[in-house]
């Protein structure tokens, strides 16, 4: 066998790639093909026919552009909120937590030991109208006497921020943790203030973590439907909720498939623009 690999060196990378490609082929490309085929069908359940029905896409955009825009706005706000919360925390853990680093990292990951659905359901109790949080906020007049937290835009965006927080915190931490402290010392030797050293050394070196964190937070958040379904009302429905309802409630498979493609396409375009702005080398770290 060793002889074979030696003689056919060019083949080895392909052999190593084969399992991954097979996996992607079966579980990504084949379903994508089905989805694409379905998105161009027409008819009423269960008699769908393939008719190159491109109008599915235009109809979906006309009917649901509101939910589509809302998804990106919510995901965008949640991503920025995650970054603002995660960066100082990751910074502190990387540079100041000393021997307690791993413990604090564990705290960030701990909520992940509970399933996504249950984590979100927990907020139903925490934010309940008769619950302690709302009662305190009413008492200190932050909320009106009949005000509420649940079933609001605030609740949905907070839910997304909470659920995707570790996706932001961990990559940012990893990039901060890799920074050689001698670089900061060197900056100070060259008369940089702490703030200047952060701005000129730390921030640029942690950029790959920020970029990676932004992407893996924003992309799934834009397609999320659990938070809007559990913490929101019809006024907070996101594109994921529409796709779910089209597949399960109205049995409009072509409509749901075309919406899925629109979501994917929009994310892809945003990703390309983002990559253009920040530079591709940061995407790959």
């Amino acid at each position: 066998m060793g002889g074979f690999f030696h003689r056919h060196r060019g083949v080895t990378p392909y052999l190593l790639l084969a399992p991954g490609i097979l996996w992607l082929g079966i579980f990504f490309l084949v379903p994508m093909g089905f989805l694409g085929y379905q998105s161009l069908q027409s008819g009423i359940f269960p008699d769908f026919r393939f008719t190159w029905e491109f109008s599915n896409f235009s109809t979906a955009l006309t009917d649901y552009h509101q939910q589509l825009i809302r998804s990106f706005v919510y995901a965008g706000i949640a991503t920025v909120a995650c970054l603002l919360l995660a960066y100082p925390l990751a910074y502190w853990i990387a540079f100041r937590a000393g021997p307690w680093r791993n413990l604090f990292l564990l705290f960030i990951v701990a909520p992940f030991f509970v399933t996504y659905l249950v984590r979100t359901l927990a907020w139903l109790n925490i934010l309940a109208d008769q619950g302690p949080v709302v009662r305190v906020l009413r008492d200190v007049h932050i909320l009106a006497p009949d005000g509420r937290l649940l079933a609001t835009t605030f609740a949905v965006i907070s839910g997304i921020t909470y659920n995707f927080f570790p996706f932001m915190a961990l990559p940012v931490y990893v990039s901060l943790e890799q920074i050689d402290p001698r670089l900061l010392e060197a900056a100070k030797d060259l008369y940089a203030s702490s703030f200047q050293a952060f701005l000129r050394v730390t921030l640029p070196l942690s950029a790959p973590g920020i970029v990676a964190g932004t992407l893996i937070t924003f992309i799934p958040a834009a397609g999320d439907f659990i938070n809007a379904a559990l913490l929101g009302t019809p006024n907070q429905q996101m594109i994921g909720n529409v796709i779910q309802a089209k597949f399960l409630e109205s049995l409009d498979y072509p409509g749901a498939a075309s919406l899925s493609f629109i979501l994917m396409g929009t994310i892809l375009v945003m990703l390309l623009v983002y990559a253009r702005i920040v530079g591709t080398e940061k995407l790959t770290g």
């Binding site: 939910q67 019809p234 907070q236 909720n241 529409v242 309802a245 409630e249 109205s250």
Partner: peptide, 11 residues
């Protein structure tokens, strides 16, 4: 009707 019903729910 189903479509209209989902539309009321923001879907």
């Amino acid at each position: 009707y189903n479509k209209k019903w989902l539309a009321v729910q923001g879907q």
